[in-house]
Design a protein around this nucleic acid. Structure first.
Length: 309
DNA sequence: AAAGGCTTCAACCGCACCCAA
DNA sequence: CTTGGGTGCGGTTGAAGCCTT
């Protein structure tokens, strides 16, 4: 096909977004809804390529996203989902509606990978001379034959269910957004003010305020990606300040995970994918009782996440 | 107080997939 | 059935901030 890249035009701006650009993008999305990114630069006058606009919206401006400070539950969820799904960040993110795939990916690469490595090292020290390199002899998926891999996947799923169930039951109040909670939209932390953010913060707050207006019941709501049934929550938001509510996010995610949800069957309904996972996890009532370390440790032998890279 | 090294994260790049014409 | 446009996804990079010496 050899299609030319979308961003090779001269005059296309790259690099960090300015508050002004953010505002332009937000107002556009406010009016037209997310989607049809191709048209965004033309219609807004932004000197950005469509991909850049989409990315900026998805990872930063989209309402309902939570930034920084991953909770224990989220951390565990990520670890186990990573063990299950590999580096399919978008799929993993669909189970954490308030987080973006980019955020999760970054968190994995900067924190969790190290953490797991460290734990493995410690385990290795304890286990001592148990068969040299393998530490249990886990091989890359590609190196296993299909039967082996499927069997291992079964085990992985079983273990992950157990662990996730445990994680979910630890602290329901802060658990990452089962549908009801997302809809209720407990005021999330200011979506646009990461701890280290600088002068930009104040501008971001302005954007947040703009979004706040958008999230209130509006006559028109985002079309495009909202075409699936997830839009039920789109017009409800009592959030203040923080550009809250996962509503926008829900809509966005419904598209981004459409592949997954459609193959998963029941996901089309108003409940985000997370509740699907929940029921998936909980439908087969099994005992559990791992402590946190156990949870983490469980992952390692499953697939040694580092081996996915 | 300054310099250098390290960490974090926003953004870019390129490939893959989906879908309409 | 084929082609091409649009979008999504995962890997990677580089700038900014933070920490240590």
């Amino acid at each position: 096909m050899g299609r030319p890249p979308c961003c090779d035009k001269v005059g296309v701006k790259k690099g960090p977004w300015t508050p002004e650009e953010d505002l332009m993008l937000v107002s556009y999305v406010q009016e037209h809804g997310p989607g049809n990114w191709r048209a965004v630069p033309t219609n807004t006058g932004l000197m950005r390529c469509s991909k850049s606009c989409r990315l900026r919206w998805t990872n930063y401006l989209r309402p309902g996203i939570k930034r920084g400070n991953f909770t224990d539950q989220e951390e565990k969820l990520i670890i186990h989902l990573q063990a299950l799904l590999g580096n399919r960040w978008a799929a993993i993110a669909s189970y954490l509606p308030e987080r973006t795939d980019n955020d999760i990916k970054n968190y994995w690469n900067t924190h969790l990978k190290k953490k797991l490595k460290k734990m493995q090292a410690e385990e290795g020290d304890i286990a001592g001379g148990r068969t040299g390199s393998g530490g249990g002899g886990v091989k890359r998926p590609a190196a296993l034959n299909k039967g082996q891999w499927e069997r291992r996947l079964q085990t992985d799923i079983h273990t992950a269910r157990q662990a996730l169930r445990d994680a979910l039951s630890l602290d329901p109040s802060s658990s990452p957004a089962p549908a009801a909670k997302v809809a209720a939209a407990a005021p999330p932390p200011p979506a646009t003010t990461p701890p280290g953010s600088t002068a930009y913060a104040s501008s971001a707050e302005n954007i947040a305020r703009l979004l706040e207006g958008w999230l209130r019941p509006v006559g028109k709501r985002p079309e495009a990606s909202g075409s699936t049934s997830t839009t039920a929550t789109t017009t409800q938001c009592s959030g203040e300040g923080g550009a809250a509510s996962a509503s926008g996010g829900g809509a966005e995610y419904s598209t981004e995970t459409s592949k997954m949800t459609s193959s998963g069957g029941a996901a089309g309904s108003a409940a985000p994918a997370f509740s699907m996972l929940e029921s998936w996890l909980l439908d087969d009532g099994m005992g559990h009782g791992d402590d946190e370390v156990g949870l983490m440790a469980d992952v390692v032998p499953l697939g040694d996440p580092s081996e996915f890279f």
